[in-house]
Simulated assay, not measured.
Amino acid sequence: MSRVPDEMALLVADIYEAAGVLRRSGEALAAAEGQTQARWQLLSAVSDEPLPVARAARRLGVTRQGVQRIANDLARDGLADFRPNPDHRSSPLLGLTPQGRRVLEGITDRAAAAHRLLAAGIEPEEIAAARDLLRRVIGQVGRQWGE
């Protein structure tokens, strides 16, 4: 009898555990700059180019309504703003303000320092192999569940 299903079950459990630990650490990193992880993710999603809320939500894999609430909060706090969308007048673009860019850079700098600590003692090839395996698992799940 193959151990693969048992090992896969353990890998999935480890992935969920890692996701929880990383989510908590992400919340702590964002909190150090007065933000939440959800706000950090949205700031990051619109950092390269302003996006409509619906597209930002698709990029993040969450609901448009949740992203709209966070976008409104970011705009209220001066970290983002809504800009005219030349392609769709009723769907403005969400973009970063200079203050939002500074906050995002602060969180990103903290995250980079945390990542350096996480990677200490792990060879880059091991990290690459782990990433490759995770991408393969994600692909398998996507194909299985039609994503």
Rank of each mutant, 00 (worst) to 15 (best):
A128D: 10
L134P: 15
Q68K: 10
L42D: 12
D6Q: 15
I15G: 00
E33S: 12
I70L: 07
D81T: 14
L134H: 11
W145T: 15
I15L: 07
A13N: 00
R116D: 07
P50V: 00
Q41M: 08
D6F: 12
R89N: 03
L134I: 11
I138G: 15
V21A: 11
D6T: 15
A57R: 00
G142K: 14
A113H: 11
R101D: 10
E49V: 11
G121A: 04
A45E: 03
V141M: 10
R76K: 07
S90N: 11
R110Y: 06
A128I: 08
S2F: 05
G66L: 03
L43V: 14
R143I: 03
A128Q: 11
R89E: 08
G100E: 03
R116V: 06
P124M: 12
R136Y: 07
R58H: 05
R76P: 01
Y16V: 15
A129Y: 01
H88T: 10
A120Y: 09
P124R: 07
T36W: 02
L133V: 07
L43Y: 08
V53H: 04
A30N: 06
G106Q: 04
P84Y: 15
Y16A: 08
E49Q: 13
L79M: 05
E123A: 14
L133F: 14
R102E: 10
E105V: 01
E17Q: 13
R3V: 13
L93T: 00
L93S: 06
L94G: 01
L51Q: 10
G121Q: 04
E123P: 08
A112C: 04
L94D: 05
A120T: 12
E17Y: 13
P124T: 06
V137I: 15
E27Q: 08
G139D: 11
Q99N: 10
G78N: 03
E126S: 08
